[in-house]
Amino acid sequence: MGAMLPWLLLLVVGNLILIWPPLEQDATLLRWLWLFAEQTAFVLPFLLFAAGVALARKLGYSKRVRRAGAVIGISVVAASHLLGSWVAPSWNDRYLAGLGPETEDMRRFGPRTPVGITRNIRFVETNPPEEYALRAGTPHRFPPNVLRWELHAPLALAVFGVLNVFIGALAAELTVNLKRGSRRNARMAIGVLGGIAFLTCHLLAGPVEPFLRDGTMRSGVTAAWLPLGLPVAEILVFSYLVRGKRY
């Protein structure tokens, strides 16, 4: 966890400091807390790579790393999911409620928690609109595939976080014989490039852009889980390279 803290402070707290005090009159402390929870939840799975590297360095390259990595990974992504899928939407809903009656349509199905999103999906499927739309004020017209992606994407991101611990541990073992500076740079490159690649796949696979472009209704469930093929492939390749290095 200590290996993740500096990056968390840099990426999340540093960014939030830049927008506080707020430039907008309606940007209250509640909005700041919502942004903090949302950004922390998003960043944590990516930072678990650093936790995997630190675990391998501390425990050695043994089965203990797998067990500890699983415990730490699941614990962190559980906290991340709680923040991103429950706490942040609840704070955002409270913030919107404070803006007055003009936000009532946006809050029609309650906070954008899994419960609220599921309620939205059921309504849209039971009462399909004449035309789907993605305007914030008309959630009753949201495409069901986009809603399913919104529901599944946080879970897929959590799974990526757990996988990222093991990628970090494998990267640490793979680069252990490099010189100190080269080792640090190689590990950082693997972590950063792997995270960027996954995020790119996540964005490209998402159903929002195709819908906005030409109305394509791409499967939201598939779009959420398909990018996990990349970290799984990383683990398989790194495991193969590590085994070759050992033997």
Rank of each mutant, 00 (worst) to 15 (best):
M4R: 05
A205I: 04
V165N: 13
E150C: 06
H81V: 15
V165S: 09
A205H: 14
L212S: 08
T175I: 05
N120T: 14
L30M: 15
R246C: 11
M106T: 11
P128D: 04
A156H: 05
V176W: 09
A233R: 05
A189D: 05
G52I: 11
V159I: 13
P227H: 11
F36G: 02
L9S: 06
A224W: 01
I17L: 11
G2Q: 07
P207H: 09
F142G: 07
V53G: 07
G215L: 12
S90M: 14
A56T: 02
A153Y: 09
G84L: 05
T118W: 09
I74Q: 02
W91Q: 15
A51G: 14
N15P: 10
A186K: 00
R180W: 07
A172L: 08
L11H: 01
A133S: 12
V65E: 12
T216H: 14
V159P: 11
N92Q: 15
E102I: 13
V192I: 08
R148N: 09
E102W: 13
G73L: 12
A223R: 12
G100F: 01
L33V: 01
A27V: 00
R183I: 02
G206I: 12
G110A: 09
L8K: 04
P22G: 02
L236W: 02
S182L: 14
G215W: 14
P128A: 08
R246S: 10
Y95D: 12
L193V: 02
M217H: 15
F160M: 14
P6C: 03
L147E: 08
G110Q: 07
R141Y: 07
P231A: 05
E24W: 00
T138V: 09
I235L: 12
N92T: 03
V53T: 04
E209S: 13
G52V: 11
I17F: 05
L212Y: 08
D105C: 11
G69N: 06
L33R: 00
I196S: 04
A54M: 14
P129R: 03
K63P: 04
L155T: 15
L10D: 05
A189P: 08
A224S: 06
V159G: 08
